[in-house]
Structure formats: C-alpha cells, structure tokens
Design a protein around this nucleic acid. Structure first.
Lengths: 259, 259
DNA sequence: CGCAAAGTTGAGGGATATCAACGAGTGTGG
DNA sequence: CCACACTCGTTGATATCCCTCAACTTTGCG
C-alpha cells in the first residue's frame, strides 16, 4: 500500500474510463535530458547534484489537442514541460470541465496524482509540447541519497501549492476586469521569466478557456479585453496582446476588493 | 541555500512586520506525541515505521484568537492539528485579508512555507487548539531512512494540493447557495471523519469568515443559510447547524453550473 | 468559396453586492 | 440583577455586476 510509487510500472496509463476526445499517444522521443538541465528548467539552480547530475530522463512529444495525462490515469511520473503550452482541466461527474491552469515551459504536471495514486485532472497540449518524463519512484530514490534533489522535490510540490493559493485569492477577491488584468500580468511575468517579451505575446488559449479558468463567461473576458484596448491600457487583437500600461493593470488588481 | 530547512533554527519566528492583532506565544506543553500516533492523526495508517514509530514530537497550545503562524515567519516546522479549529488567512499588500481554509484535527499547517522558506499565510486559532510541532529538518531526515515516512510526507503535501483544487473548482463553477451547500457538506464530512455527528454541529467561524472563504459577502451567506432553513433542508440557528436533507444540498452542488 | 470555430458587441435580466435598520447573544460594570 | 456597549446575525430595498441570449464579424481551413 504505502510503496505505491515504488512499483516500477509494467505497462502504464491504466486509464479507467475510455475517454472520447483527447488521445494520449506514447510518443517517446530519443532525446534525453540531464538532471542538472531539469533543475535549471525548474528555476531551481542546484549545485550539489554530484554524480546524479548526469542522470538522464526521457522526453515525450505531444501535439496540440492531445493529452499528456488523463483523469483516472495511474500516477507513475511527474512531467516537466520543456517547451510548449498546455491547459489543466478538472472534470466533475456531470461532465462539466473547468480549466485549472495553463502550464508552460518549466512547470510541473501530474502532482495531483500523488495523494491517492491516480490523477484527477487532465492535461492537454495547446500547441506542440515536449515534456520530460520523471518517474516518481526514481526521483524519490534520488532524493533519498541527495539532499539537493530532496529539496528540489519539496520546493516543486510547495510551489504548486502557492500557485493555487494565488489563484484562490484572485477568484475570491477580484472582480471580472481585475481577474483578467491579473491573468495578463501573470502571463507577462511567466513569459518574461523565460526570456520572452513581457509586453508582447500571443495567447494560446481561447476566451472560453480563459473564462473557465477565471470563473467568468467568455463574453465577459472579451469585454474586459476590449475595455483594456479602449482605455489604451493594452492593445488587444484576437490572440495577440500588447501591454501598454502594465501599471494600470496592476492598479486594477490592487484596488479591487471584489467589486 | 539549498539546505534551508537543515538549519536547526536558533530562536525562531523571525517575523518581519511587527503585526498588531494576533500574538504568538511560545506555549509548548510537556506533552509529546509519537510518530505512529501522528500518522493516525493524518489518516495515513502506516505500518512499517520501525523504530521511528517511537520518535516523539512536542506539542503547543494556542488559545482562541492567537496565531500558530504569522505571515513572514521563517519556515521551520509543519504543524499537525491535534485538537481544535482554526482559520488560514492570506494577507495582501493593501492589508486585505482573505480566509483560505478552516483547518481542524488531522490537518496540516504551514506547508506554504516550503517554497521560499517563509510563510505567506497566517493561521489563527478559532478556539482552544493543540498542535504537534514537526520540525521539517527532522521529518526530512526520517523520510530519508524510512520509505513509510517518505510516503507520508509526499501524500500530506499532495493532499493539500487536492484540497485547494477542490476549492478552486467550487469558486469557479458554483453559485452562492451551492457554495454554502458545498461548504456545509464538506464540514459534515470532516466532522464525520473525526467521529462526530455528520448532521449536527456548531460552526466555529463567523458569517464573514465563511463569506471570505467562499468569495461571498456575509449577508449572502446569511441569506443562503436562511433559505436552507426555510426550505427544510437544514435547521440553522446562529452557529448551530442541523442538516435535515443532505441530498438536497448535494443536488444543489451537482446541478449548479455557475449561476 | 464556403463552412466552422472563435471573437466581438448589444440589450435585457438575474444574481449578488451594497446600504441600512433591526434583533440576538455576550460580557462588563454599576 | 439590570443597563450598557459591542459583536454577530438577520432581513429588506436598491444598485451593480455579470450572465444570458442573440446577431454579427473575423479567422482559419477544406
């Protein structure tokens, strides 16, 4: 029971329900990623990896619309996004879907499976994606003998928690426009962290997906973006975004006490 | 850098801001709790603890209104609630507070501090509380040599994540009454899990705190509870709750697709 | 070119916040 | 013991925000 993730996993992805929409193909590439590169991906620069630094992990390619992870999948590995953009979707019993997040390069997928051994949320690629497969049993083994890896694991898990807390705070205390503002600022920060422009970027998701994530309807999202455009706060044209006065967006977020 | 939680901690609670309201007194009791009892508290029955089962942890008493943890406190330990009821509060820069959760017996406090080494949320006792102090460095050391403890740590962290995901889903997809319904059902389940009545219990928090947690105003919470009372779904009198038709509450939660 | 999916914009209504008054519970001091 | 103040909770009237429904435009793709 307690060594769930010690099992090496014979076949893998023992999905319960034969899901309809997204297909998960096992397209492992020949590319392998070293542990030290993985740590860099996670923005956790870890010096003392020792010999473990040269341990390598396989990667997997996922095309737009395909899933990395299906709800009900057995938990066996974490996935670290090496490139591309995805969405995490929770599915309730009545078939209702809700977007829980938009992972991108450097983010970790599949953490939710740790608790009960099976995943509760689906992760679907929004464009061409490459993920690093990190079998959890192997990671745990490495953590046991290397404090640096141990720390990496704990911080990674905790970071997800803090991320969700921020989202929770946003949903609880911000009005519609402020939520969209916060969303844009968050995206800007993350793009900047990857070396891309903080002010100009393209959305990879639809208005509906943004709305689902923010607890809003797609029309409301569209209106908020149109309002930003009208006020000269941002230039918005379909999926292309240019932030003209980020301070104005920040002000909206700061002022709003759930309007 | 990477062995943050290996430092033994000279004094502790190096808070940054001299907060006004809650005072955190260092009231360690003489009581010590064994690791195996701790695991039982966490509802993770772990057999193979070996000699570690007899390791013990100190506990601490906190009176109503006092805090277990202040925002900005240095991360050094996790706390497991042994008895009592608390609230977790996030504080934004403009002084706005938001309730993030209502931990009770068996829940874990302080996980948010793992990421950057300092806590971002405050945890305040709503009545007389006793917590078990689990120094993280010591826990990590035990996890390294005992897979059962390792598993316990991972599951504990992941469980928090799943909990927050549920909250996120609720805020995103449920209307006001359904949120209150879900809140009551959740409380009922947790009380039942501790051996208390699933249908009759007393709320320990105010309407305002419930509202803050659910992203609603206190009046809205009050109205929802009054509506339940009027419909014969629940008997509500101030803080005392009796669930008469839980299925009706469950139906409200199931049906509601944000409206 | 024509269709489907995504996005925009408008009008109207419903749900929740806001403002305000009152009632209930609790502790304090006379 | 009772008056008092204070917090918490309830209820009503009104205002506001966001959702709903609907038409239209734009983009992408065969």
């Amino acid at each position: 029971m307690y060594q769930t993730f010690e099992t090496t996993g014979t076949a893998g992805t023992a999905g319960t329900l034969p899901r309809v929409a997204p297909l998960a193909r096992n397209t492992e590439t020949g590319v392998r990623v070293r542990l030290d590169e993985l740590a860099r991906l996670l923005s956790l620069d870890v010096e003392a990896l020792g010999v473990l630094a040269e341990e390598t992990f396989t990667t997997r390619r996922v095309h737009a619309g395909e899933s990395v992870l299906l709800a009900g999948d057995r938990f066996e590995a974490l996935y670290v996004v090496r490139s591309g953009f995805l969405k995490t979707v929770a599915i309730d019993e009545s078939g209702g879907m809700q977007v829980m997040g938009f992972p991108m390069t450097g983010d970790v997928l599949g953490v939710d499976g740790l608790d009960n051994g099976s995943h509760t949320a689906e992760v679907i690629a929004l464009d061409e994606v490459e993920v690093v497969i990190v079998p959890f049993a192997r990671l745990a083994r490495m953590a046991r003998i290397c404090p640096a890896v141990e720390h990496l694991v704990y911080r990674t898990l905790s970071r997800e928690l803090v991320r969700e807390q921020r989202a929770l705070w946003m949903l609880g205390s911000l009005g519609a426009e402020a939520r969209v503002a916060a969303f844009l600022l968050n995206l800007a920060d993350r793009f900047a962290g990857l070396g891309y422009s903080r002010t100009r970027f393209n959305l990879r998701m639809t208005r509906q997906e943004i709305g689902s994530y923010l607890g809003l309807k797609l029309e409301t999202v569209s209106r908020a973006l149109s309002a930003f455009d009208a006020n000269g706060v941002a230039r918005v044209h379909q999926k292309s975004i240019e932030l003209l006065r980020p301070e104005a967006l920040r002000a909206q977020v700061a002022n709003a006490t759930h309007a």
